[in-house]
Design a binder for these strands. Sequence first.
DNA 1: AACTAATAGACTTAAAATAGTCCATTATTT
DNA 2: AAATAATGGACTATTTTAAGTCTATTAGTT
Lengths: 103, 103
Amino acid sequence: MQSSKTPEEMEIEFGQQLRDLRLRRNIDQRQLAEQAGVALNAVKNLENGRGATLTSLVKVLRSLGRAGWLKTLAPIVGISPMQMLKAKQPRQRASKSKETPHV
Amino acid sequence: MQSSKTPEEMEIEFGQQLRDLRLRRNIDQRQLAEQAGVALNAVKNLENGRGATLTSLVKVLRSLGRAGWLKTLAPIVGISPMQMLKAKQPRQRASKSKETPHV
DNA sequence: AACTAATAGACTTAAAATAGTCCATTATTT
DNA sequence: AAATAATGGACTATTTTAAGTCTATTAGTT
């Protein structure tokens, strides 16, 4: 079942997590902004889900020591060593026959 | 050891993961943009790490079925049931004594 | 209870992203 | 190998965010 949260709600909840991480380090928004190299307003926007850029997010995550999280988006789908031998080079573009897999 | 990648590099690698997810579903950028409710350019920006908004990212993630990933940023730090009883309400602001924990 | 400091919100200007369109390039198909 | 379709890149106008500053509120301290 899809949680059917709106993008706005999701941004707010996401911001709460960012705040959580910051508070665990016990630094205020101003300090975080400084360390991350963004404006105080950028941090406010992120934590309150009021709209932000991916760049601001990345800088803040680095500053919070959670940059590694960004690498966990697309988990590797492992294939057996035997199959690996005859594995084709991965697609670089979507193929013509539409609507296929649904992973 | 910090990977010391620049924010720019990180955005590019992140975009490659987004592309990966899209290709697993075998849909093209145009289809993804439509489904997500963003412009084709927004998808291009995301996948090529050329700058994007958090809103665009959230919409695209939803469309790719990876909205749940957004909830995994700040893992819960569990405490024992006994300690839970006397647990104070969590901080809502950073405290005065600066530079403390380093989680 | 009074004080202090962290955060929210509004405002302005500059910078950046979105949306829409067109053309060039290149992977994939046939 | 030729045809087709997916993607990259550039461009313009519009919208959104960043950055900087100020004020109001309120959590946390003393």
